[in-house]
Amino acid sequence: MHFKRHVTGLIFCLFYVVSYFTNKYVLSVLKFTYPTLFQGWQTFIGGLLLLLSGKLGLVDISGFPRSAALSWLPGSLLFVGNIYAGSRALSRLPIPFFFTLHNASEVVNCLILKLTQMERIPWMKLLSVSLLLMSAINLPLYDPQFDPGGYMWALAHLFCVGAYRVFQTHFKSSHLSDLEQQYINYLFSVLLLAFAAHPTGDLFGALEFPFLLSPRFHGGCCASALLGFFLLLASVKLKSGLPLEHCGVWLFLSKVFATCLSPLVFNIEVNTPSFCCVFFSHVGEALLVYSESTSQVR
């Protein structure tokens, strides 16, 4: 039983790392910086595969009330903000720097819960959140290739991620499973991004993209959509087979693997202070995972 759990976790790690590397390759190496089209393609394929999997009985997606779908729309809106801003940020920032800012979404999560529910924050979690916040604040100051646009989009991304996590955790509904929530996210994303493709200029910009007919581009886009879908299935499988705190461990390990391997795949310019920001961000995340596991034991 433990061996099967480790296999599921390792599969999740593999899909997580390869998915981020594929997205980074399309966005930064090939420079396809048209997120309405790129994310619209990914969510369209993800939604289509999820629907086909449900029809074939491979996953459990039963009918759900329209009222439940409508009540989930704020979460879908945050999801679109998450993937759109995340795509913009990932195209401009190295993967280790992106994760350092992404981890700071926990600060948004804690702040919202503190303001809305007056939750008491344990001292270890407070320490971990402080490390995450300080790492994210100091990173732009020491980044040798500072890109203000990249950090602006990363800020929007981490806010959407933190708010989405709060909404998902505290949205009480017996009608929607995790896969059904994601299916609604996909449908809403495809519609919204399709309407936004023309006003943002992405539609006409993509027509002039130099690698539009390149096999590398088409292969990267197809791989990114398929990997995103398999990552979703691996994530749901992991959550269904492990306690939440153990899932946090595998997510943490996935980010560490991606951070360590990314300099071998992509050109990254790092100095000592920016390396310390990345390092202490991972330390803060490790403390956060440990604090949540100890609180569950108690």
Rank of each mutant, 00 (worst) to 15 (best):
L141D: 08
R120E: 04
S87A: 07
A85G: 14
L77N: 04
A136Y: 05
Y84W: 10
L115M: 15
I112N: 07
L141K: 14
L132V: 01
T116H: 10
K125C: 03
L126V: 04
P94N: 09
N138V: 11
I137H: 11
A104Q: 07
W123Q: 11
P94K: 05
L127C: 13
L115Q: 10
S71R: 06
L111E: 10
A104T: 11
F97G: 09
E119G: 08
F99M: 07
L101A: 15
H102L: 07
H102M: 00
S71F: 02
P94Q: 07
L113V: 06
N138E: 11
N109T: 09
E106A: 14
L78I: 05
F79C: 09
I121P: 09
N109I: 06
I112S: 05
P74S: 13
P94M: 06
S87P: 06
S76V: 05
L115N: 11
E106P: 10
L77W: 02
I112G: 08
L93D: 11
R92T: 10
K114R: 06
N103P: 07
S105W: 05
E106F: 11
L90Y: 00
I83W: 02
F97R: 03
C110N: 14
S87V: 06
R120N: 11
P96N: 15
Y84V: 14
T116M: 14
W123T: 14
I121N: 06
R88Y: 10
G81D: 04
V108R: 12
L132A: 08
Q117W: 13
G81E: 03
P74V: 12
T100Y: 01
T100P: 00
L127I: 10
